[in-house]
Design a protein around this nucleic acid. Structure first.
Lengths: 239, 239
DNA sequence: CGTAAAGTTGAGGTTCGTCAATCTAGGTGG
DNA sequence: CCACCTAGATTGACGAACCTCAACTTTACG
């Protein structure tokens, strides 16, 4: 059940059996949510963090005019809100974009980890820093990239992240987002996402059908998205 | 010398005298940099973090076509790269935008803190989570806001952050960035920044002259930037 | 079979970018 | 003291990328 979480951690550092056990003990309960379910509202006092076991979850903020901007996507094995451990409340919403399953981890259990296990603490600290690195890369996309590059970069990132937890099939993976969701990730309208997907399809880089991403030419897609996985910190080393 | 750093921490949590002492002991050396000096290059193995004592520092990435995107600004009292402690190398550049003074903190000293002081560890973990919150807010600006709102939101954020460390004078503060720098923060060109500044000035919200921000009408500026300081986590509480 | 959600396409508009010229202030050397 | 140089700010004309609005199609599902 937690295998994807362990795989994600082990892609970046060693994880001892004792640490694995400490994580298992910190888990509280499991829960299932439908798609488009608001899991955490901004400003609410939090006592648990949420470990995503299956599905896609997003962080987003609403704007006054009704638009929204998604700031990060989470895949199976990610903590959706590990940062709430020190923040105590969030400044944004956490919502499922597909049906998903989560495990909850009480903050008291995390505090215990900071007392007992400096290394596991640093590894979780690293995890939140990795989220920040993803935020930065999205800032690059949102601020400076064309629609074509934004979508290409997003599809590349998700391919790597899903591959780590064993959720890709060759160069394909199931994502399950609507074109409007993709627009909310990239700062585009659903209409322009649609046109851009058509262009990417017509030029033979990638297709998106029924929520499934099929990468036709990884090299050209990565080039189009100016994708460099350095920001995903894939090297395994002591943190 | 470290007073601004302590002020920044004390705005969010209690900081004991012992913890203050532990921070002082972790400091290595002080250094001065001129403006536009590249302090940290991407990919380089790091053994120190950099505490900013004075001046403005940015994190940015370059794009293939020569554009750049700044992902965060740091003000006096901030760690510019506390995240390098767990990341070990950065995926972006750290550069001064004005002349500045920094103190360096060896990662060995930070490791010692994670062993000896769980609370101070959480407080520094919180600090990196606050950086991530700022990244998210910038994603909102970059993805969905108009040029006018982007600039307004940036000026509001910096006002609050500089006020915490005592670097505002009424509703004014010295920033020292060029209009091109402001464009690199907001995903705009220097030309469009110039027009937007003129518009903000003409409508009586804020002026920007010789690097100095003078807020003429805080309420209307905050409204124009859709600014809500919730993401700066200004409440003092146990982390 | 009817409905709703999502995807697709066209026409026209807006915001912001590009390119280029001009202006200003500060610094330097003759 | 002044000519010159440079970085930065300012302005205008024009163009491109993306948005808005609206209609229509497709798919899933009760």
């Amino acid at each position: 059940m937690l295998e994807r979480h362990f795989a994600r951690l082990r892609a970046r550092d060693e994880l001892s059996v004792e640490e694995e056990q400490a994580i298992r003990q910190a888990i509280d309960e499991c829960r299932d949510y439908p798609a488009d379910y608001v899991m955490i509202k901004p400003g609410v006092e939090l006592t648990h963090s949420t470990l995503l076991l299956d599905g896609i979850v997003c962080r987003y903020k609403d704007l006054r005019n009704g638009q929204r901007q998604i700031t990060e996507l989470h895949v199976a094995g990610d903590f959706a809100d590990l940062h709430s451990f020190t923040l105590k409340r969030l400044d944004h919403t956490i919502m499922s974009l597909t049906p998903c399953r989560v495990a909850t981890v009480p903050h008291t259990g995390l505090t215990e980890i900071t007392r007992q296990s400096p290394h596991l603490t640093r590894l979780y600290w690293f995890s939140t820093n990795l989220d920040a690195a993803i935020h930065r890369e999205w800032e690059i996309s949102l601020g400076r990239r064309t629609a074509r590059a934004k979508i290409a970069a997003l599809f590349c990132e998700l391919f790597i992240r899903l591959e780590i937890v064993g959720l890709t099939d060759g160069f394909s993976y199931h994502l399950g987002l609507t074109q409007t969701d993709l627009g909310d990730c990239t700062g585009l309208t659903n209409v322009h996402v649609n046109r851009t997907l058509k262009e990417l399809r017509d030029s033979g880089l990638v297709t998106y059908q029924d929520g499934k991403v099929s990468i036709l030419d990884w090299d050209r897609l990565a080039h189009a998205g100016e994708f460099d996985p350095a920001y995903l910190y894939l090297e395994k080393r002591h943190r």
